[in-house]
């Protein structure tokens, strides 16, 4: 196809540049910002996962916290109760997130439009309540700390500890890079093109002979799995699991980050996450009602700035942005 490779070189260069940039930043920025960036990379991974559904398939979910939390609990609980080393807990968590999101997708995708939103929200709330219900295991609201149970990561000759800030940073960077490159690959793959076609006009896509339910389910599963991977990384890097991380705020956060950065762009979720986390960190020092910033940002986004930051840049200047 003619368009297939248009801008691929530039896009690839950009993505590798972003990853290299994050790698280099750890040697430059002061420790506090390195810690902030660690958090941003993990949460941006979550936003990347969310964006696959919202940005490239056009489905808005209000329940992604259940996938984030699936990964979180799968990784955390397997470390605590089965003593799994981090590099075994992570794939297990990814697998379980995939199963979870495929199952949920199969049910929720029977609905569409606002029903889809409400239903994802309700199921996510059930997940949240379940973590409270089984608090003998999960620690419920209070949560559990992983620090004592985290085994070192063995890398052949030597091993590293996830309690070390440098290890945390680079672990987060690797997780982030996987998701980031995956999203680039997806947008340029045949599957990704079908998804975009569904986003633009699902009836036409259907007429062209695509089984749109199957494609939506695939997108839903990929999206949920990456969200779960982010959750697992969160548990391993920050050594804490708790039901607050399954609450509705954690379903709304990736939506906000993605919209702010620009849905349907690979870089948007990262910009949105980074910006919002810094904004919240900054405003929480000024006002105790810092969540109001979240509210105002959301309002302004839909009223005045629907494409988001990267979306606007893409429209106006750099059209090849994936």
């Amino acid at each position: 196809m003619y368009v297939a490779n248009k801008g691929l070189g530039k896009a690839l260069a950009l993505h590798i540049g972003v990853i290299a940039g994050f790698f280099i930043l750890q040697f430059i920025v002061p420790p506090f910002h390195a810690a902030m960036l660690t958090r941003i990379m993990v949460l941006a991974t979550y936003a990347i996962g969310y964006n696959i559904l919202l940005g490239y398939t056009g489905l808005m979910s209000l329940g992604h916290a259940m996938f984030f939390a699936t990964g979180l609990y799968a990784a955390g609980l397997s470390v605590i109760y089965y003593g799994l080393p981090p590099l075994e807990a992570l794939p297990l968590a990814i697998l379980l997130s995939a199963v979870m999101s495929a199952t949920m997708g199969a049910i929720t995708l029977r609905t569409s439009g606002v029903f889809f939103l409400i239903v994802t929200m309700i199921f996510s709330q059930v997940f949240f309540l379940t973590t409270l219900y089984f608090n003998m295991i999960t620690g419920g609201e209070e949560g559990l700390v992983l620090t004592r149970y985290l085994k070192p990561i063995s890398l052949g000759l030597f091993s590293v500890e996830l309690t070390d800030s440098v290890v945390k940073y680079n672990f987060a960077l690797i997780i982030f890079s996987i998701a980031f490159l995956f999203s680039l690959w997806l947008t340029r793959s045949p599957v990704g093109r079908v998804l975009i076609a569904i986003r633009e006009n699902d009836e036409r896509a259907e007429m062209l002979g695509y089984n749109i339910y199957k494609y939506k389910l695939l997108a839903f599963t990929m999206s949920g799995t990456i969200s779960g991977m982010a959750g697992a990384a969160y548990a391993l890097v920050f050594a804490y699991i708790g039901s607050a991380l399954a609450s509705i705020l954690y379903s709304i956060n990736p939506l906000l980050w993605t919209l702010l950065g620009g849905a349907g762009t690979t870089i948007g979720p990262i910009i949105g996450t980074g910006l919002m986390i810094y904004i919240i960190d900054f405003t929480s020092g000024i006002t105790s009602s810092y969540l109001i910033v979240v509210g105002i940002t959301l309002m302004l986004l839909v009223l005045a700035f629907p494409p988001g930051i990267v979306g606007a840049i893409k429209r106006r200047w750099i059209r090849w942005l994936p």
Partner: peptide
């Protein structure tokens, strides 16, 4: 926002936080 269903959801989530925090 022309009563667009999805934009409405985002806007009213925003409204939710604004009302909640003002009451706080």
């Amino acid at each position: 926002i022309n009563y667009n269903p999805e934009s409405t959801i985002v806007a009213t989530i925003g409204l939710l936080y604004i009302i909640q925090q003002l009451v706080l």
